[in-house]
């Protein structure tokens, strides 16, 4: 029997009967999730977000499972298709505040085309992409963000490809907000998500996360604390960095911060004829 009592300050946002989560010990997804819930909690208590209009959509993968613990309207849909599902829902009911949560495989590989076009449309949604550098749920295969040379179960001779920098990709499009945080800086996840919730248009937050079980195993950082502190060493905060600075490199460093902040009309506003 799971613990069903509401004790933790975030429990009112959770389907507590389903806890504990399925995530491995030391997985960063829970850190990101609790940071996002604190931001949402703040927005709800100050009255700027109606909890009944919040919709969480996720695809497949570890990060995709996160929404299933949330006490909101949630949808766990097809691999890579959370963005178009959310687009349909928001267009049918523009009052909905859609948050898409997914891993880098879900959002940037199989769902890459949808990501590009949602950003190009400046569509009204928040997308949070959890980057753990690996396909973890399926057992440690190479991901779009896996660093060059890393052993994975499908690149036994080392990853021959250079990783995809999703911040640079989305930043090159019409997104209103592009930011990167790390699970080693949960206050920044909270701050960025809090800000994103009140903005219009397409808002993209990449959260660099720890995956001691799969990525950690491949790079020799199997211990949760060791993985966390190694990631922490690599993360560099910059104030309003440019897109050129958006480095994400396991060897040279991971730059976090708010890369793009615009206030252009969103897709739905443009549909309704709003020009600015």
């Amino acid at each position: 029997m799971a613990l069903a009592m509401h004790v933790h300050p975030l429990d009112k946002h959770l389907r507590v009967k389903r806890l504990p989560t399925i995530f491995c010990s030391g997985c960063g997804i829970g850190i990101a999730l609790s940071a996002m819930l604190r931001a949402l909690d703040k927005r709800i208590s100050e009255g700027s977000v109606n909890p009944n209009k919040v919709l969480w959509v996720s695809g497949i993968g570890c990060s995709g499972r996160a929404v299933l613990y949330l006490n909101y309207d949630v949808a766990h849909v097809l691999h890579g298709r959370a963005i178009p599902f959310a687009i349909g829902a928001v267009l049918a009911n523009p009052e909905l505040k859609a948050v898409v949560l997914g891993g880098d495989g879900d959002i940037a590989a199989i769902g890459g085309n949808h990501l590009i076009h949602a950003a190009k449309r400046n569509f009204d949604m928040v997308v949070v992409m959890i980057t753990n550098f690996i396909y973890a749920m399926t057992g440690g295969q190479v991901a779009p963000t896996t660093p060059y040379g890393v052993y994975t179960t499908t690149t036994p001779a080392g990853n021959p490809e250079y990783p995809l920098n999703v911040i640079k990709l989305v930043g090159a499009l019409n997104a209103n907000y592009v930011a990167r945080a790390s699970v080693t800086t949960p206050h920044l996840i909270e701050q960025y998500f809090y800000k994103a919730l009140a903005m219009r248009g397409f808002r993209f937050i990449e959260v660099v996360a720890t995956c001691p079980e799969m990525f950690g195993r491949h790079i020799g950082l199997r211990d949760s604390v060791e993985m966390f502190s190694e990631l922490k060493k690599r993360v560099v905060y910059r104030h309003r960095p440019s897109l050129e600075e958006a480095m994400i490199d396991w060897e040279k460093g991971i730059v976090i911060g708010e890369f793009v902040e615009r206030n252009n009309p969103s897709f739905i506003e443009l549909l309704r004829g709003v020009k600015k």
Partner: peptide, 10 residues
């Protein structure tokens, strides 16, 4: 997928 999402939004 958008059609399915829209249907869920009523």
């Amino acid at each position: 997928n958008a059609v399915i999402g829209a249907s869920w939004a009523g």
